[in-house]
């Protein structure tokens, strides 16, 4: 349930963070695969693509961080407690907020893991 300036949580807000993770994953792997595709010199530096993935990672982490903070703040504002097992709109809202917090946390770590290879490898090896 939306109260005041709070967001009304739905399945769309729930999947926002994993969607950012998925887009970040596809663009990271797609761009580096494109950069390495000719494969004529696997030792050549791919600095441009690493900067692109780095920038993309910062944007993704900021986005997921925002979703995490928003959902956590609203969950706490709505009582911030478990369990979420009542058949009411308020509990459903709290449940979606808490699920969003967990998924945002997972997506945050996953985005870092996706970006780590280009952080540690300078070429196409």
């Amino acid at each position: 349930m939306a109260t005041g300036n709070k967001t009304r949580d739905t399945l769309w807000t729930l999947i926002a963070a994993p969607t950012i993770w998925a887009v970040h994953f596809a663009l990271s792997y797609g761009s580096v695969a494109y950069g390495c595709a000719p494969n004529e010199n696997v030792f050549a530096d791919i600095g441009g693509f690493r900067i692109f993935v780095g920038g993309l990672t910062v944007v993704a982490l900021v986005g997921i961080g925002f979703i995490f903070a928003r959902a956590l703040g609203e969950w706490r504002g709505n009582g911030g407690r478990m369990p979420h097992d009542e058949d009411t709109a308020a509990v459903r809202e709290r449940f979606l907020e808490f699920s969003t917090v967990l998924l945002a946390g997972l997506s945050f770590i996953a985005v870092i893991y996706t970006a780590l290879p280009v952080a540690l490898m300078a070429d196409c090896r």
Partner: peptide, 26 residues
Amino acid sequence: GCVFPVVVLTALLVWGLQMMPPMRAE
């Protein structure tokens, strides 16, 4: 269930990734 696995997996991932370029050295 959360903090410990994340720390261990991150350490293993970083360690494993930095092993890869020398294995593919010219």
